[in-house]
Amino acid sequence: MRARAALLWLAPPALVVAGPLPAWATVYLTADEARQAIFPGLAFTRADLELTGAQAAEIEKRSGVTVRRRALSLWRGPAGETFFVDRVLGKHEDIVYALGVGGDGRVAGLEILEYRETYGGEIREPAWRRQFTGRTLADPLELGRGITNLSGASLSCRHVTDGVRRLLATRALLLG
């Protein structure tokens, strides 16, 4: 009966703490692949933007979502289409996604480019992403109001949904 034996139980957590596993990286789509998936065959021109403080504040007001980054990665299409690549907070890592918006301001498509969370891989499934297609800023676009939740991925679903609303507000303000 030695307390030293108890110390052996510390070995597994010590191994984990002392030797973190390599970073995981799951990139499902590149930006080009996502753009082709949403707008097949269309040619786009890169048109990145840097928001001013006043613009960011107005976007926050219109969308109800905090603007965490003022630098925007976007492409413009021949008939006023807009293709955004954006990132939002996941539980552990950022979620990188792409949003296509038609010239009429409706969502043309949503694609998940990078997702690294424990649960909620279903966020990549077409059934969840299709909920956004055809929506505008005037439509219900909140988790639990117009957009259904995925169990175990509530934070991811909420942040992607909020991100879509923020980008629609961005487009309406600056590119509409």
Binding site: A6, A11, P12, L15, V16
Partner: peptide, 13 residues
Amino acid sequence: AGLVAGALALLAA
């Protein structure tokens, strides 16, 4: 206890 710890270490890996 060491065996148990070892098994958990494998789990950790």
